[in-house]
Simulated scan of single mutants.
Amino acid sequence: MNTFNDIKELVSTLKREEKLIAEMFSKRKSIDYKYSDAIELVDSDEGRLDFLKDRGVIRENGNYLELDDYFLEFFEQILDVNEEINLSYIDENIKNIKENIDYFLNENNENRRYSYLKFIKKTLRKIGIITFKSVIDIRRNVENTFKNEANYKNKQLKLQNLDEKRTLVKRLIEQTLHLVTAEEHTFFNRALDEELNRIIVDLKFQLRECSHNIIEIEKQIIDYLNQIKHQGEFLEKLRKLKYLKDHFTIEAETDIKQLLTQQNQVLFEKRISEPLNLSLDFIRNDEKAFESIKKMAKKQKDRKLFQPEIADRISDDFLENKTEEEIMINLEEIRNQFSATSDHLFNFIMNYDFRKPVDFSERVTLFCQVSSQYEKDLKVEDHFQTHNGVEFALVYPK
């Protein structure tokens, strides 16, 4: 098998055959792609198919074509649609970081130290991305397994295996957090720069978000396993009863008649609902599901549509603009006008025109406010006077 000469040839080839590759990728699970269908998408040019086979992009299996596993895995990883969960990547990357930390601490040459540091930064970013994708993949696989797996034993076994992977992800998250927070103090003290600090902050955020999702996945798996157990026990009892009924021994070997006569309320007992949400892949790809959707849509069309009640017209009185004016007392303005007089402050405020009614107690309060707020601009004398039972000091402008 030949390889591409350079990245330019690879990109141009993928661009030229984008119709074929996109079609084969989208149908990688539903159908086996025939050679006759593929030749139409390359303008009946067999040389273009031979070129793809020769470069290892696709491979031929009898009369069928399929994407090579290497390119298929690449597309699934880039588009984040892979269903295989490979947690060994995270464990391997942690080991690589520890090794390169030792290399960094032992190295005296600045260029080589920088290369080790660069690798550590790249690997830390990779761990965050891989962990986040692994959590998403586990959650998606848990839902798909519960909704699409027909065999109850396999469904239960797959969910238990996914729970083990969830536990492994949780342990790897704890190891990574321990590595960047407690284990390698010497390295992070020596090598910490702005970029590394930003990478660590982002990594901690990603790992904590993954930890929260891991808890939700655990609850979901427990709930699904309980539902499977309940459904399995019910089906097992149902099979036994059907076996006895088919052999006409149900009345002889069981006390079903006696139980039915004693349990009259069974007809009115609330049934346990076990709702199942259909997966999107099943709805998109299964013809029977599509027929069911069309039937439901037709029933919805036939339903009587109730017209919503229209509210009464809003009265024009509520739409009129009404302006309320309120005269505010400006202490700054009072101070400025008082500074231009020779009167004492108490007498000035008692005779001041506020353009609204202000009683004696309010004017006394204003006297106190101006005296305290503008103390530096006023001269307070030791002479006092009394007015309406209120004793006050004589205050003059400086």
Rank of each mutant, 00 (worst) to 15 (best):
R166S: 08
E174Q: 14
F188E: 03
T3F: 03
V180W: 08
L168Q: 11
E233V: 12
L87D: 06
L238A: 08
E251Q: 13
N189E: 12
L14K: 01
I200E: 03
K133D: 15
T323F: 15
A150D: 08
G56Y: 04
L49E: 01
Q77P: 04
E309K: 12
E253R: 07
N93G: 05
I214D: 14
S372M: 01
I215A: 14
F132D: 15
T131V: 15
K170D: 13
S273Q: 12
N197F: 08
E73L: 12
L276M: 12
S279F: 04
I349A: 12
N141R: 01
E324W: 09
F51I: 00
S372T: 02
L260W: 03
I120A: 10
Y114D: 08
I90R: 07
K118E: 10
Y116L: 14
P397A: 01
I138M: 05
E92L: 07
K298Y: 14
D102C: 05
N109Q: 08
I31G: 08
Y243P: 00
N285R: 07
I136S: 15
L87R: 04
T386L: 06
N330Y: 01
H185E: 10
G62Q: 05
D43R: 03
Y64A: 01
S292A: 12
Y70C: 02
L235E: 14
